[in-house]
């Protein structure tokens, strides 16, 4: 595969069968978005966000960009901004993995830490405040930018349908809602009976903190009408499935992948999906950026999961 530049290398990721993990009567596949240039599904989103802004004449060499992110979007934007001469700042919760910060540092990204106790909601709040006070900075805002789901509607979804036209269901993690909305719309246009399930990370109490319920955040790009179910997965269940993916299928994935796999295994049930159904799990990233969290270390899995629960892993 020849790509003229990094942008052209985004997408077209492998869809890999999971024969050992598929429940009897079902076929599971995982779409390995970790194979994108910066190692996550967010390369697709970053490419669309930047190209959209460029078409609108909003970006020029030297332009400053600010984005709230739990990490992957920031890394993806950083890699695509570097050759274009855009200066990137990222607002990121202080309890994300050290690998994410190191990668952003490599790209000379200005990292603005947001309070751990506010999670991604806090990063969103801070980024909005900074952008409101600084009209020269461009805020792509993945949570509210239609280019985010469109990246998946135009690329991730069609790739899945090209490789597996008779896919019955897709499971993806719920972060911004971009993957679920974009892939879900494309899938349901192709087959209105197809199902879309969201795997929602359930964190420890520190991440939810003391925020008021009326200060919650539902990303504007999330179109809940395409969802057939939303199932929460705690750190232990996510980690357990992430590890099984490695030990039984040889696939080294990030923790959100395990969460999505747990949901896929749950919906492979005749009450929800006919026997014979093919189910695609979208793996947003590989495991590299989580090594320092101890997620893959030897030791008591419950203890590891408990410490992981206070880190933003999706």
């Amino acid at each position: 595969m020849l790509a003229r530049d990094l942008r052209a290398a985004v997408g077209d990721t492998p869809l890999v069968g999971l024969p050992a993990l598929s429940p009897p009567g079902y076929e599971l596949y995982v779409k390995l978005e970790g194979h994108n240039p910066t190692g996550s599904v967010k390369d697709r989103v970053a490419k669309y966000l930047l190209e959209d802004a460029e078409r609108a004449g909003l970006l020029h060499p030297g332009s400053r960009i600010l984005e709230p992110t739990s990490g992957n979007t920031g890394i993806a934007l950083a890699a695509l901004c570097a050759p274009r001469g855009y200066k990137l700042s990222c607002v990121m919760p202080e309890n994300t993995s050290v690998e994410r910060r190191r990668l952003l540092e490599l790209y000379s990204v200005d990292i603005i830490p947001s309070p751990a106790a506010e999670g991604s909601n806090g990063a969103v709040r801070m980024a909005r405040e900074i952008a409101d006070a600084d009209p020269d900075v461009y805020l792509p805002f993945q949570y509210g930018n239609a280019a985010n789901p469109r990246a998946h509607y135009e690329t991730t979804g069609p790739e899945i349908l090209r490789d597996l036209p008779d896919v019955a269901a897709v499971v993806a993690g719920l972060g911004t809602g971009g993957t679920l909305t974009g892939v879900g719309r494309r899938l349901k246009e192709h087959d209105p009976a197809a199902k879309v399930f969201a795997a929602e990370p359930e964190y420890g109490e520190l991440v939810y903190g003391l925020r008021n319920l009326d200060e919650g955040f539902v990303p504007p790009v999330l179109d809940t009408s395409v969802l057939d179910g939303r199932i929460k997965v705690d750190s232990l269940a996510a980690l357990t499935e992430t590890r099984r993916l490695a030990t039984e299928e040889g696939i080294f994935a990030g923790i959100s992948t395990g969460a999505a796999l747990a949901v896929a295994l749950r919906v492979c049930n005749p009450r929800r999906l006919a026997e014979g159904s093919k189910v695609v799990v979208v793996s947003p990233d590989g495991g590299w950026k989580y090594l320092s969290t101890g997620a893959y270390a030897a030791g008591n899995l419950e203890q590891i999961a408990a410490s992981l629960a206070e880190t933003v892993w999706a």
Binding site: K42, T69, S70, N72, T73, G119, S120, N121, V124, Q142, Y143, G173, L174, G175, T176, G178, E200, P201, E202, Y203, V207, Y208, R211, L213, G216, F217, V218, P219, T224, L227, D228, G229, R230, I231, K232, V312, A314
Partner: peptide, 28 residues
């Protein structure tokens, strides 16, 4: 399972079900 995709506030419950309440949190 989020009750919005079941029956909303009228979602039926059975003895032994486990219910949790969480604030909405984003990722990405």
């Amino acid at each position: 399972e989020d009750v919005r995709y079941l029956g909303g506030i009228e979602t039926p419950l059975s003895d032994g079900d486990s219910v949790s309440i969480l604030p909405a949190v984003a990722g990405g």
